[in-house]
Computed example of a mutant assay.
Amino acid sequence: MDQKPCILLESFIEFLKIEKNYSEYTIEQYQKDIEAFFMFMNEQGIKNVKDVEYFDARLFLTKLHEMEYARASVARKISSLRSFFKYLNRESILAENPFSMVSQPKSSVRLPKFFYEEEMEKLFEASSEHANLGERNRAILELLYATGIRVSECAGIQMKDLDFHLSTLLVRGKGNKERFVLFGSFAHEAIERYINNSRGKLMGNEDHAHLFVNARGKPLKPVGFRYILNQIIDKASLTNKIHPHMLRHTFATHLLNHGADLRTVQELLGHEHLSSTQVYTHVTKEHLKKTYMAHHPRA
């Protein structure tokens, strides 16, 4: 029996939530990409996913290029649709996957942006206020730089996840995978100061176990972290706007610059594949090249 595309999409979303344990953000991206293809199906007069053929998949790819989508965006949309139709194959709704043979455009390698050590010092100076929010902000900056954790991971930290005796933190990453990360003395002191002096005052009558809270005492959300970090950037008079992931990139780059091996950095970042970590070797090589060209007398 034929099923409407929207019902199949709902089933696929449930699969991503329950079996794949994907984050809300990732699921939203899948949903947007697949809904965009459903609109294309309507334009082409295709009423049922069973009628989608390889030609239609190629035509959709052509349309994305005509609309001048970035290569990375096109690649993501094709990947989303390939996964969706693969799921329909698995559920015996379709016999073939029309997107299985569609080649994705090769994405240009973008080197991660990071802060130099002098820039990090300026950020720490700019976050050295002793007011309640100032102590919270300093603790956030110290922890993100000390551990390289994602902002989404930082937002999920509970009080019980911290072990001050061992200076370790239990982190729940992508796919709800857990890992322990280390943090140094600067982050240790900043977090303890925030907990002892400021967190309780900010909490007020709120009752929850999240480590970082907003001005009303509620759990701080990822968008709040971005706002805080941009405030610190403005105060430090640095020209570039910060993306929270820049601190993660900075963490990895500085470790490699100071002699850490790639496998250790991979484990600390929680990367499943070493290839995800290897991009930072290009960053460090670029840094070495710039330093050489700037300082060698016969460069």
Score class of each variant (00 low, 15 high):
A260P: 03
G200K: 11
L211N: 05
G204M: 07
L202P: 02
L238P: 00
H282W: 05
H258I: 11
K290E: 11
D161Q: 02
K290D: 11
Q278R: 13
A187S: 06
N214W: 06
A252N: 00
K201P: 07
T284G: 12
A236M: 03
K221H: 12
R199W: 09
Y280F: 10
M246E: 03
T239F: 08
L274S: 06
I195M: 15
I191Q: 00
H249P: 08
L170S: 14
A215C: 13
L247V: 03
L262N: 05
E192G: 09
L288I: 12
F164T: 11
M293D: 15
S275P: 03
T284L: 09
M246W: 15
G204F: 11
I228V: 12
R248Q: 07
G259T: 05
N196I: 04
H243R: 09
L229D: 00
E192F: 01
Q231T: 11
D261G: 12
I195R: 05
G184I: 10
V265H: 01
N196Y: 07
K174L: 02
V283Q: 09
N196R: 14
P219E: 08
Q278I: 01
S198I: 08
E192I: 02
I195V: 12
L220S: 05
F251E: 02
A260H: 11
S237F: 10
H208S: 05
L268W: 04
N214C: 06
K218R: 13
R216P: 00
F180W: 12
I233V: 13
V213P: 00
G259D: 07
V223H: 12
S275T: 13
E206D: 06
H165D: 15
A252P: 00
V265W: 02
R248T: 08
E206F: 06
H243C: 07
K235H: 15
R248G: 05
I232T: 10
D207N: 13
H271E: 09
